[in-house]
Amino acid sequence: MRSATRHRIKLALRLAAASAITLFFVFPIYWLFMISFKTADEIYSYPPTWWPGQIQFNSYAVLFKDGDATTVWNSFVVASASTVIAMFLGTLCAYAIARFRTGGDHLANWIISQRMVPPIAVVFPIFLLYVWLKLVDTYIGLILLYTAFNLPYVIWMMRGYILDIPRALEESALVDGCTRWQVLWKVVFPMCRAGLFATAIFTFVFAWNDFIFALVLTRTEVTTYTVQVTHYFGGQSNFWAKISAMSVLGTVPIFIIVGFMQRYLVRGMSLGAIKG
């Protein structure tokens, strides 16, 4: 009986600690969301309130009226287009590397090392190139860069997923009358559907969340939501309502997406080191 009590107390303590920790990590997000529903008066009232006195969507309405909300659309366009291209090209490349060992270890290592180059060092010469090619502040420019920047990740992750497919499945298809291309479509892609899905989500989120590339390569036409958020930081005063509403607009889609793919999160984040 004594030990049962102790067990219970221990569990209660752990629950309390877990709740406190989770509160710490969730509270800032709560605060961000909550601010976006407050009226301007309430945001700038002292002392701050912990719950909006009156929930309203005026902050969002302003964003849509001013056209600022299109930056979310811009983010969506570049993130999804670059994801589709990177997934397609990267998966094919990953297949060759995994199955034919094309380029050997050198190519695989070079590709993953590309992932580690700091963006600022890449974006600077790219910017100069884009000025020359007139690609600054265009969808194509951003899409191209995101595609290239995400390729190493796609190749690396898909290589892992493809290596998980038993070779015999493909060989059986070859013997049964498929060409190499047919094997790709009929066996490889269906077999790593989950991996394709998870990797695409990550690729999308990387592009969606990027700030520095967009900061350098956009002006007014294809500004993404991350850049737009920083526009509301004034010298003296910050436009909290807009900052929070714009941040929420950019964050909600990610929360929804991530909610659907909890299972693949860890493998994606660890560059495939942990298999879920």
Binding site: I21, T22, F25, V26, P28, I29, L32, V205, W208, N209, D210, F211, T226, V229, T230, S247, G250, T251, I254, F255, V258, Q262, L265, M269
Partner: peptide, 12 residues
């Protein structure tokens, strides 16, 4: 819930 901070854009 604990995943949320990781997936938020760093700028956000």
């Amino acid at each position: 819930l604990l995943v949320l901070p990781v997936v938020v854009s760093p700028i956000v």
